[in-house]
Simulated scan of single mutants.
Amino acid sequence: MDAVFDICYLSPDGSNIEPDDIPKTKDSVWILGKKYSAVQDLDRIRRDITSVIWCTYRKGFVPIGNEGLTSDKGWGCMLRCGQMVLGVALVRIHLSADWVWTPDTRDPTYLKIVQRFEERKQAPYSIHQVALMGASEGKAVGQWFGPNTVAQVLKKLIAYDKWSSLVIHVALDNTVVKEDIIQQCIVKNDRGDNSSTPSNVTSDWMPLLLIVPLRLGLSEINPVYIDGLKMCFESPQSIGVIGGKPNQALYLIGCVGDEVIYLDPHTTQRSGLVENKMTDEQKEMDCTFHCKFASRIPIMAMDPSVAVCFLCLTKRDFVELCTNIENNLMKEAQPLFELCEKRPSHWGPATSDIDLQNTSLFTEFEDVDRQFDDSDEEFEIL
């Protein structure tokens, strides 16, 4: 547990130094749609960052598919970023936006969420499920995903998990269509057990995770998009951006000044199970899902291929997001994306590409013996 949580930062002479995660600045810090003061709220910023479910490379898990891969090191970073976005969404739906994790947390709802990302059979969002579903998007197991691919995969996987109580909408052609989203989110109360749905979520609105894949330049970010990207981070509905540096996926959770703040999946940790967090080993494994400090890069160092993510728990949230897009984002000289009431005529009718009867994906690796690495080696920083 200490290997993850009690990180010691030392200067060249061996003395303790303050980690350079949040700059000492008068600029506002924006993390997952919340505004902080870098000076007055530093402890709260770090507490909230640590509470995010941190997904990283793992090793020693059940072999995936015919390839027999037992680690996603070198190819799974974008898949892990997708898991982190979904983790934030599930925590906000089933716990709250202000929920706080500690090493002693044993909340059963939290455990139910984190178990969904473990490398085990039947975990709805394990690396196995994400990688195998990627085949439907033309990506073989072990092949690197882009932001749009991981968004499409999550959209398909969420349909198999009724407990999550979430709709994922992936915008097409830089265009958010209100009509399509409302048709997806306004539902009858027949989608399984909604007993865990918070009271602030209306019974006829399924919480929405809106993902908008974008290309903000050719080989690097076009500066004309920077202000719009900052507006996205500052939106109350923001749950970050799937993106990164060239050839290195990162979960971008916020911004300060002209820098973005991110969680990095490029740490290889052993696979294992949190289960009910009763044993020391399970407690240690739970701590591997939380990172004490975030990191920063200049916005201009980002890869131009991104996917901005918003969570609307209620219809009111969605209306507020649309108003914000119309009044601010779309008034930029070069808007990041468009918002329209109805589908463009040349798109054709909306169709579902998810076959809920085909559940073979969830049993493909069910009969494989578990081969978790039980060595004492700690994780590797890449």
Rank of each mutant, 00 (worst) to 15 (best):
Y36T: 03
A89K: 00
P304T: 00
I22L: 02
W30D: 02
H346C: 11
N189K: 11
F5N: 13
N189P: 12
N194V: 12
F372N: 03
E234N: 10
D43T: 14
K73G: 12
P344C: 09
I45E: 06
P213V: 03
D161T: 04
S352E: 06
C81I: 03
R316M: 09
G68L: 04
I7F: 14
L313K: 12
I325G: 04
L69N: 04
K24Q: 14
K156R: 09
N66Q: 10
G146R: 01
V39I: 15
L132V: 09
F117Q: 00
E281A: 14
A123M: 03
T363P: 08
I49F: 07
G14P: 04
P236S: 02
E377F: 10
S235M: 06
S165C: 12
Y125C: 08
N276S: 13
L313H: 05
D104E: 15
A301L: 12
S203F: 11
L263S: 02
H169C: 09
R370W: 08
S11L: 12
L166Y: 02
P246K: 12
S345H: 15
K156L: 01
H266P: 05
A249C: 01
A350V: 15
E275I: 06
D21F: 13
E338Q: 15
E220D: 14
L252T: 03
E281C: 14
K292F: 13
I242P: 09
D13R: 15
M330T: 13
T175C: 14
P207T: 01
V29C: 05
Q83L: 00
V39E: 13
E284I: 09
F289M: 08
S203G: 11
D98R: 14
D98L: 10
R316C: 10
